[in-house]
Design a protein around this nucleic acid. Structure first.
Lengths: 223, 223, 223, 223
DNA sequence: AATGAATGAGAATTCATTCAT
DNA sequence: GATGAATGAATTCTCATTCAT
């Protein structure tokens, strides 16, 4: 069972009862510990003991707040989804035209990924742990995209021939693989991940997106 | 140690000795069984017992050919990589210009994914099982892409301002997420995966790629 | 890492945490079961399942208290060492001169071996399972011997020309092989091991030791 | 089934058939390989594959010459026994009185142990692998000892009150533990085992044995 | 006489989950 | 609310031995 993606996921325990103040604090510590452990070790290497030890609470206590290992993982992915979208929305706020918004959205996404590389891998791992929650994650991000593209299409900010839905998924895919290749895989001479996406890469990608989205003059050679 | 991605991966056993004819047959049966089991159950649900049972082979025999579950998984990913690239190369053969080749490449990729949906998820899971082999997989595919784009750039078939490397990874990412969304997730009323990518989606994606790559007339509005 | 040979070996679990009362009881049951199983079957025939089954405890529980089969084996040897030394010390208490003490010490050693023949074989097997712990075992016993011999030498109770260290190891060796030959190997007509060392053997051995240690009159023929 | 301890153990294969010349060579190579492997790794770490690989012959071939892992181990112990006894007999040859013979015998034993430390550990391990063959080993050595002591007793070369059998076992035990402590355990600053028993230790031990065996004048204080 | 592929019983070990305190 | 001892199914891997070639 997947918690409501937006609602305050932290108000009930594993059996659905509302939490006391103390209980809420415990739940939060568990989630924070899970974040670190899943990021460092991945889903299968992580264990409930590692999480509770890191959280500084008793093993049995875990089950007062979560049904299972999978359930805390899902809660974490949902939380991360909110944070990624927040990072993107923040970056897009105040942009004027659609193309600018697009760039800003990508920048926000890459910023989050660069700051939490391992954590973003957790989101990707959801595909194999809890496909449902991954769908939720992608869908939620794409929804915003798609709406924006639809509006931009109406207003002529982007090429009228584009399909908002497919375009949104395509852009998302570009961001994911560029992020994986140039953020998650990239290490400097000290073996550290880069603090942000390389300027060259970002520019090159932007160029391509501009091309893809820009409205076309009548008479372009494309059919 | 990851076997050579192209070389005859099937000529040595777990200790590096070359195989007899009988040995080669056994190794093949193991790989075929692994393909089914990993595809159906995912890496962590799969087990060596399940693989050998499906292969109709004694448990201990497994270890004559592979070091570990991870090692047969890697061998499988390498094999799949070859097949995906084959599917793409086949589709691209005989295309004239770059844009046509691009479309054909995607078509080949989607064809493979549609025919082996679960199998392609295996490749994606490599990110969490054996990152090295996933790098190999992507890199190998991207290399071909990149070389093609570089040539097309020279000949003016595509926009001169594009960066072949970044563009190649971006295109790859588009293909992956479109494939995941519209092939892996999609089920018809009988719960069956589609036999091929929806025409509408493919067209929409092609439109976008055409936009992204098409050479620009002088005086275009881009910076 | 080998636990302190004398300290309360029973106060911590496999991860070093101190034990609750319940935990201590479980650990004791495991050690008692291990004693029986190792004695009856030897190290390699013994298995953790056999130990936990005998202890009436779940398999997984074993690993809460010991790291591995080797680690419980070492704990057992250390425990046996304490008991052998106790048996010897008890026998020697109250003896007046050194020669008498020597005899008593041997008697104590043989008493323990006769009462736990299989168990004493466990100690000997440590040579091949955990040489370090065997060293500890022998060294601890020899230390006491050596100190006694050194004092006896000072006081003229034994031959001044003897080297306490070498003599101690030699005496220990005599005891071990005599014990093996005349206690571990010996079976009566019912196939039962003897309840104690044969009087004749003990007397003969004592004679020899008396000879070896007794102080010499001036003018003896030796070098 | 234990092969005849003295007879040419190498004239038949696992099924008892006499060997051809070629077969005899193969059997010898197996025994030589087993010697190295058992010495380096101990009985349980050793494996048939390791032995046959070292011998440079096929795995299946092993079973043409030996019934089992235990059976080649026994053959090896028997062979070592012959060599130890040879080393001792050689050293004792030509000594005049019993005490001198005793010293020489020990010297021969220590020489063998110093030259093949790991190998001698193999013999000791027989206690846990094949107690029967260990009995044979000790008994054979002790027999010679005992006979010599009996004769010396008759001739007045040693103390008349000693029991030849018990004395022989006691001397054997002394040798074993002294050897273990001062040859097997001892390492120089380079971690290498000593090439021979330390002079001081040998002298000290000899002193003690002299004491133990030397005939007593009338009127000695012993009863 | 020689080979080595195949076997499967058996071993150690892990960990999500339960439940009595 | 909190705890942590107990559990056992499940997994990976080893290796002595067999047998068809």
């Amino acid at each position: 069972m997947i918690a409501d993606i937006d609602g305050n996921a932290s108000v009930s325990n594993a059996t659905g009862k509302p939490l006391t103040k103390r209980g809420e604090a415990t739940r939060t510590r568990l989630l924070e510990a899970a974040e670190v452990v899943f990021a460092e070790q991945g889903y299968h290497e992580a264990s409930i003991v590692k999480i509770t030890e890191r959280a500084g609470i008793g093993l049995g206590t875990f089950y007062l707040y979560f049904d299972s290992k999978q359930s805390i993982f899902e809660a974490l992915v949902i939380d991360l989804n909110r944070r990624v979208r927040h990072s993107m929305a923040e970056a897009m706020a105040g942009t004027s035209d659609r193309i600018a918004a697009e760039r800003a959205g990508f920048a926000g996404f890459f910023r989050f990924t660069a700051q939490h590389p391992a954590l973003y891998r957790v989101v990707r791992e959801a595909e194999f742990v809890s496909p449902e929650v991954l769908k939720l994650h992608y869908t939620r991000i794409v929804e915003g995209y798609e709406a924006g593209l639809a509006r931009a299409k109406e207003s002529g900010d982007i090429d009228r021939r584009l399909d908002p839905e497919v375009t949104a998924w395509a852009l998302m895919g570009m961001g994911e693989l560029i992020g994986m290749r140039f953020l998650l895989w990239e290490r400097d001479e000290n073996g550290l991940p880069p603090a942000q996406l390389d300027e060259r890469v970002f520019t090159a990608m932007t160029q391509m997106i501009d091309n893809a989205l820009a409205p076309r003059r009548e008479g372009n050679h494309d059919d």
